[in-house]
Design a protein around this nucleic acid. Structure first.
Lengths: 166, 166
DNA sequence: GTCTATAATTTGATAGAC
DNA sequence: GTCTATCAAATTATAGAC
């Protein structure tokens, strides 16, 4: 993909993970990349297009990364991914924040958030254990822990809330 | 409190719990209540004032309600409160959504979300068990479960993700 | 306490030159 | 592919009449 297009997606991802869909504008993203908002529209016609594209890339990247590690290490891998994002720049899961805001989001964006959780929970679906719904429990813990660490302005909250996970 | 002022807070709470801080406007709230946006400003001068007031009332109400039940039933009480809100109109925790969006929120609003989690986790602080951080674990699970139930558009997700909670 | 009117700014989006 | 210029609409907020 072209340099600029990727840079736009990068900037948008950062913006949404920080303040949500309603918390960024085309002008914000353009300024981050160093171009004008009209140029952003050239690559992604509408805010819906842009946001859905960011969410799809986000999902595909993370799912692929996690599929690269053995089953029994995947819960720890997800935990590390989110922990690092939180420690490095206080950002939470892109699709987590979209899920929270979903009542005021365009349908294609909600659909991408849904897809993320369907695929993500599947990466830690039960194979050997007795319990069902392991994936749902794990992601609920991770998403909630991120949200709380941000609300309480303390990254340690994430570690303490998820210490008992796989 | 005056009828209208409460109605404004009610409408705003519904709006934020559905689409977040960035997902509602003064005109939305005014239309819900049946007045004009200028009249909303008469009661709450700025969006920051309005949002912080909603969050404070939300926190005070829930904390008081939960303090009315015995210690050993509080986890179940919180679970029921959030479960009902989700089932009745698909809404999540007001302070959960604010926590997620916190990077693009006015400081007084973030402060109210922080206060909620400080007080809420305290209502289920450990008294007898061996584990620390019970409150953080429980609320992470509940908040994450709400967020996922909304993203996946399936209220059963909340039940399945939180089935193992106290 | 609510209204009309309006200011000032921001926002998503488009047209057309280079 | 980026720019300038611009639009139409929405947004937060204020002034002043009733």
């Amino acid at each position: 993909m072209a340099v600029t297009k990727d840079q736009i997606l990068d900037a948008t991802e950062r913006r949404i993970r920080d303040g949500g869909y309603g918390g960024f504008s085309f002008r914000d993203v353009a300024a981050d990349v160093g171009i004008k908002s009209a140029s952003v529209h050239h690559h992604f016609p509408t805010k819906t297009d842009l946001s859905a594209a960011v969410a799809r890339r986000y999902t595909d990247r993370l799912i692929e990364a996690v599929q690269g590690v053995p089953d029994e290490k995947r819960i720890g891998e997800w935990r590390q991914i989110f922990r690092n994002a939180l420690r490095q720049d206080g950002r939470m899961c892109l699709c987590g924040i979209l899920g929270a805001e979903s009542g005021a989001l365009p349908e294609p964006v909600v659909a991408e958030a849904k897809r993320f959780f369907q695929l993500a929970t599947k990466t830690i679906a039960d194979k050997d254990t007795v319990h069902q719904d392991t994936g749902l429990r794990v992601f609920a813990a991770l998403e909630g822990a991120m949200l709380m660490a941000r609300a309480m302005d303390d990254p340690d909250v994430f570690d303490r809330a998820t210490a008992s996970l796989g």
